[in-house]
């Protein structure tokens, strides 16, 4: 397969960026999108052009690093996949493919397609944990009964890989889906309930400080999320935050 690639090139955080156009040929339809970029980069190196910088690590949909906005969608046209899980057979031979970095004020571009998602880490640091002693005589994990429904829901929320597709997709660059998944995975479980009010207040505060947008409930995030995180999480966070801010002193 042959493609025309329009890709965002930007030398550094403060530099002005723009779209550059390259051609790639002899791409197998079994290649992943990242492998196609690898081919492009080898070609660029031979031509003495700087290769396109992009984030990636696991290449199997679990690390959440491969942030790319492809043809106007986070992680491209596939559903329930990250960029590394997207195959070139999703495109037609001869297509023009536009690739941009995930865009949000809170995700500044480092270089080309690579962005700094440290804002997510700071949201986690603000409350995405449970304070428990991890040494000494720990109670047996199965001694605390947990309803199956809650365990399942907490597990579903915990599958969020922090990729940032929700932010990239949202017309408001809102981080509600990510933050609410991180709030939910803990607050649904008995160990997490203890700090639930404080957690939701602190995490939302940090989310606002980072400069993410607000939620309009368009639902785009849950469509583009590679892990199928549902906006039920957002409703849960809205609920928890409302009661926490009414009852907190």
């Amino acid at each position: 397969m042959n493609f025309t690639i329009n890709v965002w090139r930007q030398n550094g955080p403060k530099e002005k960026g723009g779209i550059a156009t390259y051609k790639v040929s002899n791409i197998s339809d079994d290649m992943s999108f990242l492998e196609m970029i690898d081919v492009l980069n080898e070609q660029l190196i031979i031509q003495d052009i700087d290769p396109v910088v992009f984030d990636h690590d696991c290449r199997e949909g679990i690390c959440g690093m491969c942030s790319m906005f492809i043809n106007g969608e986070a992680h491209g046209p596939g559903r329930g996949v990250t960029t590394c899980q997207l195959h070139m057979r999703e495109f037609k031979d001869g297509d023009t493919i536009t690739i941009e970095p995930f865009r949000a004020k809170a995700f500044p571009v480092i270089k080309d397609l690579m962005v700094d998602r440290g804002s997510f880490d700071r949201i986690i640091q603000a409350g995405g944990y449970v304070s428990v002693n991890t040494s000494g005589n720990l109670p047996d994990a199965n001694a605390t009964p947990i309803e199956k429904q809650d365990a399942d829901a907490a597990f579903d929320s915990a599958t969020c890989i922090g990729c940032g597709a929700c932010v990239a997709t949202c017309k408001n660059a809102s981080a509600m889906l990510f933050t609410s998944a991180k709030v939910s995975q803990l607050s649904l479980l008995p160990q997490g309930k203890i700090e639930a009010s404080e957690r939701v207040m602190n995490m939302v505060k940090q989310m606002d400080l980072e400069g993410f947008g607000n939620c309009t409930n368009t639902g785009a995030c849950e469509v583009e999320c590679p892990k199928g995180i549902s906006i039920e999480n957002i409703a849960r966070m809205n609920r928890e935050y409302l009661s926490a801010s009414i009852t907190s002193k």
Binding site: N6, W8, G17, I19, F69, N71, G72, T98, E100, R103, A104, K105, A106, N172, A173, S174, G211, F212, G213
Partner: peptide, 9 residues
């Protein structure tokens, strides 16, 4: 304001 640079596509 939460997205300073618009997407091309």
């Amino acid at each position: 304001a939460a997205r300073e640079t618009r997407y091309v596509k």
